[in-house]
Amino acid sequence: MVIYEYKLAGNKLQYAAIDEAIRITQFIRNKCLRLWMETRGTNRNDLQCYCAQLAKDYDFAILLNSQARQVAADRAWASISRFYDNCRNKKPGKKGYPQFQHDCRSVEYKQTGWRLEPDGKHITFTDGCGIGRLRLIGSRDLATRPLPAITRVRLIRRADGYYAQFAIQVERHIEHIPTDKHTGIDLGLKAFLTDAEGNTVANPRHLRKAERKLKRLHRRLSRTQKKSHNRRSARKKLAKGYLKVQRQREDFARKTANALITSHDLIAYEHLRIANLAKNRKLAKSMSDAAWGRFLLWLTYYGHVHNIPVIAVEPAFTSQDCSACGARVKKSLSVRTHICPSCGLVLDRDHNAALNILEKAYRTVGQTGTGGAQASPNASGQTASTRSGRKVRAGKRAG
């Protein structure tokens, strides 16, 4: 599945019609959720049937395309099923009981309710909401895409305008050029990542850099009168500021992941429980600003596209164990240098962790039978005996 996104060019009446379609989507989702709360044993099929009843009971609901109403019911069921899964799996803490939505920003169509023009640069919505014909602003050509390949069309409202997303059913594969290089990466806050060769990628800190401007916009918003035109304008400027930070994080995560995948044949990383780590009040903002989750998502995606292994290993003791002799050296988070009293190895803490992550990945590959058990390199980058007794050069595939 590939998503193509375009900005929409229309007039104020068309944008108001999109807002109305989004409000109807939110209304149907919340009504379906209310039905589930009040009626024991409600399943997904009951919610789908309830959409037709809502269209009869409310004149405005029938304006939205029938399949778009079904998607709204599917959104309600997605939150319900997630709650069921969390309860069944005995997830610790809150189970995520479904909540009513107050800030819906998108409406989704399936195969009906819209028509792509032959030029591939315009789309027309044919349901009763009155959205009409909109121009698509983007560089990707949709005219060459067969219509059956487009499975969903989603309209999204953002701070800087309205967008259309096309979900296209296609398998994407890129011919990977072998590099004979393996690496482990350790994610951090001082440096965004450190690999097994000691190379680092600086932490961009997008939110920290924009914080001064965002605080000023927050102050302007707080000084405006509620329900005034100035308040709406101030809210829009503030939302654009946060949207820019979000896009900067996404762009950085995507480009960094792509660069790693194209330059290696195997990548190992720590399987971090980011939500648990973010409970630390002193580090929560910095962790969120680093956007490790988005980076790992793109890393896994590009690994699938290039058909190279991206292995998640358990993070236990990767920073404490010595990458040369295996001795466990206890250290606090403030200690940034690994000094082993057993073998005398002196190494940056993150570099040592990256080597241990790669070593764990080799053991994982050997246990799963997807490849031979391989040893990790010595921190110095020179050929040296490892804990498993084999010899290997840093960043290279084991022989």
Rank of each mutant, 00 (worst) to 15 (best):
G198M: 04
F252L: 09
D348I: 07
V313G: 03
I311V: 13
T179W: 05
F100A: 04
L221D: 05
K12A: 13
L217Y: 13
V346H: 04
A324W: 11
T151F: 03
Y302N: 02
L142A: 08
G132C: 04
G130H: 08
I131S: 10
K331N: 08
K237G: 01
S380P: 02
A149E: 15
A375C: 15
T42I: 01
L347M: 07
I311M: 02
S319I: 05
L136A: 00
A379Y: 10
A9I: 09
E117Y: 11
W36V: 10
R328P: 02
D289F: 14
T144N: 10
H122D: 02
N199Y: 14
Y97G: 00
R212K: 13
I137T: 10
Q367N: 13
R205F: 06
I3W: 12
R82C: 08
T256H: 06
T383S: 10
L147P: 04
R29E: 10
H182W: 12
P315M: 06
D57T: 11
N199L: 12
S233L: 14
L136N: 00
L355T: 01
T112I: 07
K12C: 06
L193R: 05
G371N: 10
N307M: 00
G293S: 15
A373I: 12
Y362M: 02
H206M: 01
D141R: 13
K95V: 06
Q320M: 05
R34E: 15
D85G: 03
Q14W: 05
T179V: 06
A394Y: 09
L116G: 03
S286D: 09
R145C: 13
C129A: 02
E175V: 13
R328A: 11
A239N: 07
D321T: 11
P178I: 01
D57P: 01
K285W: 09
A196F: 03
L8Y: 09
E5A: 09
W77S: 04
K240R: 15
H218N: 05
K95E: 08
A55K: 15
K110F: 00
K181N: 08
R247C: 11
Q165P: 06
R349T: 01
S385E: 14
P204C: 12
L187Y: 11
T25E: 07
Q26G: 14
R219L: 12
F27T: 02
T112P: 00
A354V: 03
L136F: 03
L8W: 07
T25H: 15
G293N: 13
T179P: 09
L221K: 10
A21T: 02
A278E: 15
